[in-house]
Simulated assay, not measured.
Amino acid sequence: MSATPAQDSAPLLRVEGLKKHFPGRNGGVVRAVEDVTFSVRRGTITGLVGESGSGKTTAGRCLLRLVEPTGGKAVFDGVDLFGLSPHEMKAYRRRLQIIFQDPYSSLNPRMRVSGILGEALDAHGLARGKQRPARIAELLTMVGLSPEHARRFPHEFSGGQRQRIGIARALAVEPDFIVADEPVSALDVSVQAQILNLMQDLQQSLGLTILFVAHDLTVVEYLCDDVVVMYLGRIMESGPSRSVYARPRHPYTKALLSTAPVPDPDFKRERLILNGDIPSPLDPPSGCVFRTRCPYAGDACAEIVPPLDPIGPSHASACIRQTELVAAGIL
């Protein structure tokens, strides 16, 4: 986990009521993200986690305006990004960057590494003339590659090396905030650890603020200061990683954690098996969207959309049966 910042550090990004709807079949609406609210503290790594189809990647791309949101706010350093015109947004592109999931398709195969990194510099008028090759060499060294790699094409690198190039491209413009969209999910396990360690070192040395999108809670526990758990477009639980992992207060978080591997053969974790698949966002369940797979759902869960209620300092859960389940020793 990255160096623990002060718990009262101000958020660099505050997301309020984020919504993203897509047109569906026969005039329906796909509610990919619905009323999502959370904060990312300055100089920290926040994990945005959930199963495939939970809306986490869509939410991350909305924040950068790569996908236009349907509603809500994204207040970045005091400015609502969603209220900016395309021209005004361009001024913020340097401060907001993304690391893509697939290191194979995210790099232009026709460009040398020098061109890939130089393109980012050119877009913002940085490191011109003689400064350009020096800056490219610096970036490659920063991510554990050789300056000589600048002359090569993407196909000459392994997946882990390509992702290092993707990280260097994001860092080229000296951003304040990075969305890392499942940056290790396409890599071998041994390579994943190297990339995670690299990201942790860079975050600490450069003071970056990162939203780390993932489905693997083990990775998030290792890397992130805070965690936001999403399911079918809504937040189920959020809070400091240590608090959420030590005692999850939502059945969905508990289910995800129960399947996560633990590097201790003597540790026995109670398994909470979820039945069925995640429902379609085209026709989400009424009330609590998790109720159709929740082993503790009651009649009221079909009627009430649970608010994200505070549990303690910075920890919140969206479950109307939370108090009852805690009292019964289930959560």
Rank of each mutant, 00 (worst) to 15 (best):
F100N: 05
A127F: 12
G72D: 06
R42Q: 09
E68K: 14
P86K: 10
H87N: 12
I45L: 02
S106V: 03
T141K: 15
G50Y: 08
F76S: 12
M142Y: 15
F82L: 00
T46L: 07
H87V: 14
L84T: 09
A91D: 09
D35A: 08
V30W: 09
G27S: 00
R135P: 03
H87R: 15
V40S: 05
K56E: 04
G47C: 07
I98S: 01
L84I: 14
R42I: 12
R61H: 07
G83S: 05
R132S: 09
V79S: 14
A74G: 02
M142T: 15
S85F: 06
K73A: 08
P133W: 15
G43W: 00
A59E: 03
N26E: 11
L126C: 12
A127Q: 06
L107Y: 03
S106P: 00
M142E: 13
R110Y: 13
V30C: 06
S52N: 05
G43Y: 02
G72N: 10
N108E: 02
A120H: 02
P103F: 05
G53W: 15
V49K: 01
K130T: 11
V143E: 00
N108W: 11
E68N: 04
V79G: 05
T37Q: 14
L139V: 11
G43C: 02
L126A: 12
